[in-house]
Design a protein around this nucleic acid. Structure first.
Lengths: 109, 109
DNA sequence: TTGACTCGTAAGGAATACCTTACCTATAGT
DNA sequence: ACTATAGGTAAGGTATTCCTTACGAGTCAA
C-alpha cells in the first residue's frame, strides 16, 4: 500500500447535499442523531455515516450525553471554502467591481 | 430506469482539487486545453474530462478558435457556493458578530 | 434483570468517480 | 495531398461513494 494519509477534504465533505443540510441544521443549535435523522428520508445509519464524514473533516464535534450524542457545528473549519470563494468576489460584487475598475483607471478616489 | 434528470451540482463540480485549480487558472484569462493541461500531472484527456464536468455545470464556456478550444470562467455560476457559505459569515466575521450581539441585546444603534 | 432506546459499525451491493491508453475528427501549414 | 497539432471520446480498470439491513454496545427506567 502506498497511500500514507488521506487527509479529509472540506470540499469533499460539503459536496453532498445531505451533509450541507446537516450543517445548516446545526447552525441553530446542537442536535442529537435522531433529531437530525428526522429531517431526512434516508435511514438513521446513513445519517450516522454522513456525520462521521463531517466529524473526520472537523466540521462538527461530538458530545455524549447519556445515550444521546449531540453534534455541534465547528464553523471555523469552513474557512477553506470561504477563502477560496472570496477570490471570486470581485466578479459578482458590483460595488467592489466598480471600485476596482475605478482604481484600474488610475484615478484618485 | 427511473432517474429522469441528473442536474449537475456546483458543489460536486468544485469538490475535486483539479477542477478548483482549473477555475483558479481561468480567473486570470481564458486558456486552451493544452495551456491548462501543462499545469497538471495528469493526462490531457483527464483534463478534458474535468473540463466537461465544469462545462456541464455551467462554470465555464467553450469558444472554438481554429483548432484550439478556449475555456472561459463563468463566475456567476459560483453563486450557490457564495450564498451557502454566506450563511456562516457571522461565525467568523468579528465585526458582524459584534453587531449581531449588539442587536440581540436589544439596544439601539 | 429485563426491555426499550440511542447510536455506531459491519457487510454487501449498485452506482459513480477518476484515471489510463487507444483512437477519432478537425484544423493548419507545407 | 500529406503531416503535425489540438482536443474530444470510447473502453476499461480500480477505487470510492452512498445507500441498505443486521447486529452489537452502552444507557435508562421499571
Amino acid at each position: 500500500m502506498v497511500t500514507p494519509n488521506r487527509e479529509p477534504d472540506i470540499f469533499t465533505a460539503i459536496s453532498h447535499p445531505a451533509r450541507r443540510r446537516i450543517l445548516d441544521l446545526l447552525v441553530e443549535t446542537d442536535r442529537s442523531v435522531n433529531a437530525l435523522a428526522g429531517d431526512f428520508q434516508m435511514s438513521r445509519p446513513a445519517v450516522s455515516q454522513h456525520l462521521r464524514i463531517l466529524l473526520n473533516a472537523g466540521l462538527v464535534t461530538e458530545r455524549r450525553q447519556g445515550r444521546e450524542r449531540h453534534y455541534r457545528l465547528v464553523p471555523e473549519r469552513l474557512a477553506p471554502v470561504r477563502d477560496w470563494i472570496s477570490h471570486y468576489e470581485r466578479f459578482w460584487d458590483d460595488r467592489l467591481q466598480r471600485l476596482q475598475e475605478h482604481l484600474l483607471r488610475g484615478e484618485d478616489l
